[in-house]
């Protein structure tokens, strides 16, 4: 797959974001490279603290400054580096070219404004429409996201709507200015499964209709399988595997990806006996392991893993993996060091 620059809507290069606290520096995102092709969907998966949400907040420059700061790297959106933009320029991009859907539809909507006003607000600001036209567009948007009797709902406040409805309003706001890229941070995590199915279906259909590129951040591997074209698996601030969705689920190569897939209890498959697990827990972000960050929990880890950080290397089938197993050095290494049962 040789892609020219024009095919990529977003390219993140060596992004490093850190938080500076009294106890020291936390490297929340540490050298992340990603790209999203036009009209395609990229999924970022990982557990709490893997840096997936901070990656998305860094892209939109929504970090809590000065504690959180982008230290290094570029975020190229349509040929321009967002890291170098001024605050004012970013405001013009947010909600207009790139918008975001957050996890908690209750806390991310303004409780003192009606749903219609919240949608119309961004239309007025970015598209310079007058109040009346913006309102009409807001009602249209509510209709588009499948809210019954949109004229009535537009005049209601968020507390009057159910969780699923609120998330639809969020989607309406984010799509109101027809952005080229939509970032969805755990868009369905707070919702029940039957409502989640509705929302995922809606996002998929709207993406097809509007041609929006999509970045989904989630911890739910099912959502990834359902929605994404490409997947980046993150662990402790680094991308450990980056591949097609099919490869991730049928031929995963990083021991963490494999462990993660095996530890999910499946609803459509019987597992005899115990679930396979990943031993131990995520390392303390203030004292990250020196070599591969997964080495202390990895069943295959050898000497080299504890001392040297592997690079994200392309394997034979185009899958990118950050693991020594797939390097030439591996054969020269001695025995595995972690004696897990």
């Amino acid at each position: 797959m040789n892609l020219t620059k024009e095919d990529k809507i977003l390219e993140v290069k060596n992004l490093c974001t850190s938080f500076f606290t009294d106890e020291g520096e936390v490297k929340a995102v540490d050298g992340v490279d990603l790209s999203i092709e036009k009209g395609k969907t990229l999924g970022i998966v990982g557990e709490s603290g893997s840096g997936k949400s901070i990656t998305s907040l860094s892209i939109l420059r929504l970090l809590q400054e000065p504690a959180g700061r982008i230290k290094e790297g570029e975020v190229i959106f349509k040929g321009e580096d967002l890291v170098k933009k001024t605050k004012k320029q970013m405001r013009e991009i947010r909600g207009n070219n790139i918008s975001m859907i957050f996890q908690e539809p209750m806390t991310s909507l303004n409780p003192t404004l009606t749903c219609g006003e919240q949608i119309a607000e961004s239309i007025r600001i970015h598209q310079k429409l007058n109040k009346k036209k913006a309102w009409a567009k807001a009602v249209d948007m509510l209709k588009l996201v499948g809210i019954p009797s949109p004229e009535k709902r537009a005049k209601q406040y968020p507390f009057e709507l159910s969780g699923g409805m609120r998330q639809r309003v969020m989607i309406a706001i984010s799509l109101a200015c027809n952005p080229e890229l939509l970032i969805a941070d755990e868009p369905t995590t707070a919702l029940d499964v039957t409502i989640q199915a509705q929302i995922l279906e809606l996002i998929k259909n709207l993406q097809k209709e509007l041609g929006t590129s999509l970045m989904i951040i989630t911890h739910d591997l099912g959502v990834v399988a359902e929605m994404c074209d490409k997947v980046a698996v993150m662990y402790c601030g680094k991308v450990v595997e980056y591949a097609d969705v099919k490869t991730i689920f049928t031929n995963p190569k990083h021991p963490y990806t494999i462990g993660l897939l095996n530890s999910v209890p499946k609803h459509d498959e019987d597992v005899e006996g115990d679930l396979s697990i990943i031993p131990g827990s995520v390392p303390n972000p203030f004292h990250l392991p020196e070599g591969c960050r997964f080495a202390p929990r990895c069943p295959h880890a050898k000497e080299i893993c504890l001392t040297k950080l592997p690079h994200l290397e392309e394997t034979f089938d185009g899958d990118k993996v950050r693991c020594w197993i797939h390097s030439e050095e591996w054969e020269k290494q001695g025995k595995a060091v972690n004696a897990h049962e």
Partner: peptide
């Protein structure tokens, strides 16, 4: 409906979904 609504990690078998 509940069972069919859960996103599956089994990519090979795409099932028809019942959306309530």
């Amino acid at each position: 409906a509940l069972l069919s609504a859960i996103p599956s990690t089994n990519i090979a078998e795409k099932k028809e979904r019942i959306i309530l």
